Amino acid sequence: MNHTERLPRNRTYLMCPPKHFTVEYAINPWMDTTVPVDAVLALKQWEILRDTLGDLGHQVHVLDAVAGLPDMVYAANGAFSVDGTVYGARFRYPERSAEADAHREFYTTQGWSFAGPQHINEGEGDFAYLPGAYGGTVLAGYGFRTDPAAHAEAQEVLGRPVVSLRLVDPAFYHLDTALAALDDRNVTYYPEAFSTASQRVLAQLFPDAVLADRADAEAFGLNLVSDGRHVILNTEATAMGDKVRAAGYLPVHVDLSELKRGGGSVKCAVAELRG
């Protein structure tokens, strides 16, 4: 497939620097409190990711880090926006609950239409939006962090159809560890992270999807950010880079080894602002 068929679109993103990033507690299988985080390296890697997005022509807003919230660097979890409307997050674990307030303050002071949630959901961690798929479709994960009731709530807030997908592997506890939008209508995903029924749904909706294997998923190769042409993913995910290249996209590798200690990679660190 010719790369010229894959056209980038300028995006706006929100990121939060890992100024207070540590692994002080374990709320997913990737977190090991016995291995210290290299705070200097984590910040350097984050800055390279931010600069990479900027160099590709995207605008990056920065949310101030808050002391005592070590996971705030995973900015994707704080909310989910579609066409200027924001569905706020409500975290599963109390260790992260105050992050939702910081995100709410950002959106409300910026003039977004913000809806506070009644149900537990972790923002773009468990929601993906494809504006070109079936007139604009939200894919939503549940099983570990986000309550299924949040999917119906998001549909009411955003006015877009929401497709519920059940996650079944604790290693892939958020949708964004198991599935990613490559452009406005195409996805890549690791089938075995989903229930059998959800696999059938995905196969029906996205027959041309780029399928990943377990090694790709464990390398956080699906925790990526794509502008429709450039696919930013971590350096460990070399095989995943080959797969997206074969599908006509251009992989851009960034080292995020420190952020993986907390159970996240490129996508976890980047929320898309869809104004």
Rank of each mutant, 00 (worst) to 15 (best):
Y129F: 09
L69C: 03
I48W: 12
A197R: 14
T22V: 10
G141L: 02
S195W: 13
V86Q: 01
K44M: 15
Y134R: 08
V62R: 03
L202P: 10
M31I: 04
A239I: 05
V86H: 01
W46Y: 15
L205H: 12
R166Y: 09
V62I: 13
Q155E: 05
H253M: 09
R200W: 14
A269V: 09
D83R: 12
N223Q: 05
A150K: 08
S113A: 12
L224D: 03
V270F: 13
P17L: 04
V201W: 06
Q118H: 15
L256E: 14
P8I: 00
F91A: 10
L211V: 06
G88C: 01
E99C: 09
V210K: 01
F114P: 12
I232Q: 06
T22E: 14
F144K: 06
D169S: 13
E156N: 10
P161S: 02
V138G: 13
D32W: 09
L49K: 05
D32I: 09
P70D: 00
Y173T: 11
M31K: 09
Y93S: 05
G228M: 04
V82I: 15
D242H: 15
S81F: 03
A203M: 10
P170Q: 03
T137V: 07
R214M: 00
K243C: 14
V266H: 04
G262S: 15
C268N: 09
F144T: 10
V168P: 01
N77V: 04
A149T: 01
R145L: 00
A217T: 11
G111S: 14
I120C: 14
D169M: 09
A26S: 15
E95R: 06
V23I: 11
T238Q: 05
E192N: 12
E47W: 11
E192G: 04
L175R: 01
A239D: 07
S226G: 06
F106Y: 00
A154K: 08
D51K: 14
Y249T: 02
A181P: 00
Y107M: 05
E105R: 14
G54S: 04
K243A: 12
E5H: 09
A271K: 03
R214F: 01
H103M: 08
R50G: 12
R145W: 02
R92E: 13
D64I: 06
H61T: 03
R214S: 01
A149K: 01
Y134H: 11
V35I: 14
I48D: 14
R11V: 09
H103D: 05
P117Q: 05
V210Y: 00
T22G: 08
E192D: 12
A128D: 07
E218S: 15
R9M: 07
P251W: 13
A79C: 11
K44C: 13
K260C: 07
V210S: 03
R6M: 04
V138W: 13
R11W: 13
P17H: 07
A215F: 10
S164D: 14
A181L: 02
H103C: 06
H58V: 02
L14R: 02
P70R: 03
M15E: 12
P8M: 02
H230V: 01
T33I: 15
P8H: 01
V168S: 00
D38G: 08
G221C: 06
A42K: 05
A133Q: 14
A269M: 13
E124S: 03
M72C: 07
P17Q: 08
